[in-house]
Write a protein that binds this DNA or RNA. Structure first.
Lengths: 348, 348
DNA sequence: CTGTTAGCGCATTCAC
DNA sequence: GTGAATGCGCTAACAG
């Protein structure tokens, strides 16, 4: 490996001159500059990333931190990353993906400061040990999704309006005449769960529905499909008054479809199904195709990155927030409530 | 920022002792170790990543290098990355995604050695300036796909058996009685193109077909969909003897479907279509669903990572190669050749 | 088992 | 414009 000293020697100049030629941080005469470049080329010299970093405290690397539990990228992550990379590319940052388990990182040998200038945190949890006052102060962090309540004013984040989406999704069903809507929400420890529950409840209340007792939390022993399947199956058997289901993800919806098929309940005729997110990119795989909200994940990624680089460049410790709009896409798994319209036949 | 010296001072020991407590690279008495840890905790100390790297020459970061032109991750990349991350996770590496344009990286201010221990190179091209003798010798590199011929024995790579897949795909059509098969191949500058052409030609020859003149290279001014659309349209108009099309990607197949629809040519009755790859994850979006090869991209990513870490750990400069199997998945866009079977009716 | 010393390769003062 | 000296924070080799 050739170093800056080698180049300096060959070019007959000092190390600091070579440094300046590459960094362009102070003017160098054209003549000297060319001599240095020539020497560098001959020796195959490139400034050493780590040494430079150690001196400048800047890595020009952005981090994307995912919990190792969900190390599998879904469709949601895919387009989110596309958004992130798009921004990185235009600002000259590289992206470091960190999916190492908390356990691994906490082992003594692996305890190291992070090699990034700032970090995007995905999938925030209610109790998330990636978020601590010490850590937040160390370097810029942008959360994607809603941070735990105690950090809401302490950390910047980019999120959808989950309360609003949940409201709209529920309203979508209510306006089709559904009055008994099952809501299969995200696990309780995910920060989105509360917002979505609130949107759901608000909509029900606004439409005079009192039976929003069907909120069910996901149990971690089962996969989300199994959970949705067993819960739906049980409910449909016990309580046939349920005419619509809202699921947290398209994966969950698979479980609902499976349960419905088993009981010969037709979708959407007998049961409407709609999902909050199209994380898995599976909406088209259903028959009928699954109605869902579109969370605009590419924009989520883009704005998070933009915000992060802004904080880095400005060396700012401001706390900012960006809300990304979401839209509902009807695909065929939701329809008017048969029961309701039969009961109210005389009114039409 | 607190450093190792601060901790050493507070704990009343030397720097190297503190270092060893964290790295565990030499035994430290329990008593001292606890005192150091205590001090570290009080001060909020973590070893500095870049200082450590500068001293050890190890970053424990793997690079994934994509050309910036195709900075958009497709489905193919998604599962490939899942494979890469899976491996990273079990070996404790982090993943640095580098999509910076060649142009950016070549500007003087941005010239830096790479911050990774080794790199995976995607989408190799015939003339690829990421592959040069100097670079290859610097640190371990694993190419995904086929490297340019002159580097085939100089660099490790993981690839599908593209000749074999192309042969099988073509054979698949030939055995259904198709004798005039259009092949919309990848752009000439992509290294896969030659292998696929060879497989196609071999199959045609083995089946006594001489009209394999329909190989068409993609022109860069158009999108692949436009290219496929216009080429197919033109050909179907001029030369209706074409009864089957092989496309490089599922995206391309969209163009074929579009052209067919416009001419009221029915798929698969009048025209069979099959794609080499399901890069876009779109195969199910077609009606009928698109038959295609499955390139096993997750395995591609996993094996590439495994190979790379092997080379890094062994400090080896061996050149290795891994071939990942692919399979053909029939989905409905290919069928027996009507023309052929009508012509040969008497034989059945 | 622990301390001392000497770099790792670069950027950044401060002189000239 | 350029050079010399100093330090970034850590590990490693040697010594005890």
């Amino acid at each position: 490996m050739t170093t800056i000293s080698d180049v300096a020697k060959v070019a007959g100049v000092s190390k600091s001159t070579v440094s300046s030629v590459f960094s362009k941080k102070r003017p160098i005469s054209k003549e000297v500059s060319e001599r240095v470049l020539q020497a560098a080329k001959e020796l195959g010299y490139k400034p050493n990333y780590w040494a430079r970093t150690l001196a400048t405290k800047e890595t020009r690397i952005l981090g994307l931190n995912m919990k190792a539990e969900n190390v599998k990228f879904s469709h949601f992550h895919l387009s989110l990353i596309n958004g992130v990379l798009h921004e990185c590319n235009s600002t000259g940052y590289q992206l470091l993906i960190n999916t190492l388990s908390q356990q691994f990182q906490e082992e003594l040998q692996n305890q190291v400061s992070s090699p990034v200038d700032g970090e995007i945190l995905m999938d925030p949890m209610e109790r998330d040990n990636r978020l601590k006052p010490e850590i937040i102060k160390e370097k810029p962090i942008v959360v994607i999704g809603k941070p735990p309540k105690r950090y809401e004013n302490a950390v910047s984040y980019v999120d959808n309006d989950n309360i609003g989406i949940a409201y709209e999704v529920t309203k979508h069903l209510l306006e089709k005449g559904h009055e008994d809507i099952l809501f299969l929400n995200a696990p309780e420890n995910r920060t989105v769960a509360k917002d979505r529950e609130m949107g759901y409840r608000n909509a029900c209340e606004d439409y005079g529905i009192k039976s929003f007792k069907h909120i069910v939390e996901f149990k971690n022993e089962l996969t989300s499909i199994e959970f949705a399947y067993s819960t739906t199956l049980k409910l449909l058997k016990e309580n046939s008054s349920v005419t619509a289901v809202i699921t947290d993800t398209d994966k969950m919806a698979f479980g609902v479809f499976k349960a419905a098929a088993e009981l010969r309940v037709e979708i959407p005729n007998d049961l409407s199904v709609i999902s909050f997110s199209d994380n898995g990119g599976l909406t088209h795989e259903f028959s009928p195709p699954l109605s869902s909200a579109n969370l605009n994940s590419e924009l989520l990624g883009r704005e998070a990155t933009r915000l992060l680089t802004e904080l880095i460049v400005a060396k700012s410790n401001l706390v900012k927030r960006v809300v990304i709009p979401a839209t509902i896409i009807e695909r065929g798994s939701t329809s008017r409530c048969k029961v309701f319209f039969e009961q109210n036949k005389q009114n039409f």
